[in-house]
Structure formats: C-alpha cells, structure tokens
Design a protein around this nucleic acid. Structure first.
Lengths: 135, 135
DNA sequence: CCGCACTAGTTGAATCTTCAACATATGATC
DNA sequence: GATCATATGTTGAAGATTCAACTAGTGCGG
C-alpha cells in the first residue's frame, strides 16, 4: 500500500507541475476521451473514475472553468447531464498523456519483473471485482 | 491503481466509521507503536508514514487534541520534537487494528492467490526503493 | 393521473491536504 | 566565534475532498 501511495504521489506531482492537472482530473479526461463521442453521463463517469458524484461535480466545475470539459443537459432524461471533452481538453490530455506514460514506465512498468506485473494486474482486478460498484 | 485506490477508500471508511480514525492517522499510530519507547522524531515519523512534514504537523495536532498522541521537545536538538503515543492512543490503536486487519483480510489477502500476493509485495517494494525517501 | 420511492446531480460547510513562508537551531568553515 | 548553508518543525491561506442536505425528474403501482 505504501508503495502505491508513493507512486500516485509521484504521478500527481508530475502531472501537476508539467500540465496543471491532478491525477483525478487526468483520470476524468481519460475516461471521457475513451467514451463514444467523448462524452458520458455524470453518473457513468463517476463510476468509471471511481469517484463520488459529489467529488466529480466539484472536479468537473474546475475542469469546466479551465475550458477542458463542457457540461450540457441530456435531452432524454431531464435530470441527466452529459460531460464532454472539449477540443482543448483533448489536446491537453494528449500532451499530458505523453509525459504521464513515460513516468509510469520509469517508476512502475520498467521497475518490475514482467511476471510480477501480471500478478499485480490479476490481484487488483480481483480486488476491484470484489469491491463492486463505487459507493 | 484503480483497485488500490478503491481499497484504501474502503479501509478509510471502515476505520473512520468504527473508530473515528483516517488511514493516515491510523498509519501514524502504527508507526509510533512500533518505535522504541513508542516515540519518534517528527521527521522520522513523516518519513515512515510517507507524509509531508506539514501534513504530519497538522495531523499530529488533531491526534493530540484527541489525546492519542503527545508531543514534547527533544533535549539534544532544540529544534526537534518527539511525538509519542499515549496509553489512550495505544488502546485505541489496538481496538482499531483488530477490525482493520480483518477488513484487509477480507478484501485483499483472502481475495488473492498467495503467489500473486507475494508478487505484489515484491513489486511495490521495488517501487518504494526506486522512489527513495519522501519529498 | 396521483402518490411515493427512487435516481441524477449540485451545493455548502466541515474537514483534510498542499504549498510557500516563516522562526528557530545546528554545524561547518573561515 | 561570526557567518552562512542547511535542517527541523509550525503556520495560515488556498485548494481539494467528504458528508449531508437539497432540488428536480422519473416511473411504478394503484
């Protein structure tokens, strides 16, 4: 646990100093970029990014005021809200991802024996499944 | 990473609802309880618990006001401060640890194949070594 | 078509963390 | 033994997260 905490700390600082993004903001941009039409309902996004809805709301407000994300209401379900990635958001993500991937390699992927890496993947997938949906 | 985030989230909520402690507070109590005479210099404690000094200061203030930790100055080095675990702190830790260990088993240890668990240990030890001391 | 339980998302206050600035002390060097 | 670079720890403000309360909309059952 200690190792993984320290690792995210590194990632966080790296992203923040180079691109002004926290890991959780980055996470959100990634999920959006992978979604069809680069947009997702808030609830779904919260689920994907393992964040509470409240937290997502706040974080999205920040991202919106940075111009990286835009929210508009969903026509079908009047309660619903779509968050979608702006072009600027996508561009920022692309830049950030390049550095981020490199950092991940340096401190994680390349540091570990390949078979141990696979084991880590298996292990935490199971944990995730065991824990079920967020909240 | 996602799995490990979700895992600490569970630990956190578990500790908080049952014992009123956050994971980082718990962490601090653990390190102190393991130290000789149940006390450590602030800097050393920060290092052990992978926290910034500033954060430790604030957290210690909270723990102190709860009566679980006490700080007093170090005779050798007048800049220095010792944090030590009070009896009440130790008692609280003992209670918390019982539940905590069980939660860890349930969602982590028992969920994972033993050899994968070993791999996880190896992997993150290396990460930790690679990252070096905090900050 | 009314009532009611439930879901979506936001808000604000309380809490926690980060960051930079600070006060103080140490110790090496000249 | 004065000076300067460095280490220790705290502080307060700014930023992020959590928690509980809230608004609004959905949709089922009668």
């Amino acid at each position: 646990m200690d190792g993984s905490v320290r690792l995210t700390e590194i990632m966080d600082r790296d992203l923040k100093t180079k691109h002004g993004l926290s890991v959780s903001e980055y996470e959100i941009l990634v999920r959006l970029s992978e979604a069809p039409e680069r947009r997702l309902r808030m609830a779904e996004l919260a689920e994907n990014a393992s964040q509470s809805r409240s937290r997502l709301s706040h974080t999205c407000s920040r991202l919106e005021s940075k111009g990286l994300v835009k929210r508009d209401s969903c026509p079908n379900d009047k309660r619903g809200v779509f968050a979608h990635l702006t072009d600027e958001g996508f561009a920022t993500l692309e830049r950030a991802a390049r550095d981020h991937v490199e950092t991940v390699r340096e401190f994680f992927i390349d540091a570990i024996e390949p078979e141990d890496l696979e084991a880590v993947g298996r292990a935490f997938s199971i944990v995730l499944k065991r824990l079920g949906p967020t909240n």
